[in-house]
Amino acid sequence: MSVLKTPNQAAAAADVDQVHVVQRSSLALTMRRLSRDPASVIAAVFIIVLVLFAVFAPTIAAWTGHGPDEQFRETGLSPSGIPVGPGAEFLFGTDQLGRDVLVRLAYGARISLLVGVVASIVAATIGVTVGMLAGYFGGRVDTLLSRIMDLVMSVPFLLAAIALVSVLGPSLQLSIAVIIFFTWTPIGRVIRGQVLALKQREFVEAARSLGAGHLGIMFRDILPNLMVPIIIYSTLMIPSAIVFEATLSFLGMGIVPPTASWGGMLSEAAGNSIYLAAPWLVIIPGTALLFTTLAFNLLGDGLRDALDPRAARKA
């Protein structure tokens, strides 16, 4: 307690003290750092394009004249029933039923983004709440909530998910619910750890000694200090939610056909190994999926580097 805490004089005694650094949390600074990272810029541009692609899916359908579930058995399939490859009529080719892959890709993007964003936001909210309560109150509350997190984490999630789906029947809502249930725990743990550390900080004690209530301390004193991990983790949860959804759909436990989803498209391509004859059926949705998750992961990394320069220096 009475141990002297001289500021760490180790390497680079870059005494922040004396350097008038512009405040870190300032949005402008973050954006400037972010824009200096080409990977983040490309990722952000890709995500914007993807969102536009998804939003304007009906426009694309109207422009091509092909509905998402419309089957073109005459023009879209060869006489022997093989899908036609990318060309003037079908920009990205057709699938085994003669449907336009481009249009289905656009509609699939809507599902992926919807699931990714909704599931991440809800899961992050649950995770932050539980982590905050566990870390802040400690004791029995912490033991209970941590145990629940441990429990959820030790369930083989894909097995449990398919068991659930097999009973309740696949649907978009169930997919989202399952993804939320199995993805809120990591951020919950991170937040709990952070809150445990923050709670020890003297400024929290200072707030208590001033007579601030629990809610006030949680929201005014602790939450602002959690914004960086929350932003980073939420961003990084989006790609894993998207992959989770695609995996469920790929196993036939997610989005119900004929609604277009990327995982479903890949699943249909894998069925009867049709993709070996029509590789674009894997390459196009597979690449879309890969680039989407890559873009979110790169953006998440970029955000971490920009928001948390200490970690950035390590990165």
Binding site: L276, G286, L289, L290, T293, N297, L298, D301
Partner: peptide, 16 residues
């Protein structure tokens, strides 16, 4: 980052 972003079934199908 590429590895983390790669859904395993996409990778598997492409590898095949």
């Amino acid at each position: 980052v590429v590895g983390i972003s790669f859904p395993s079934f996409v990778l598997g199908m492409m590898a095949l």
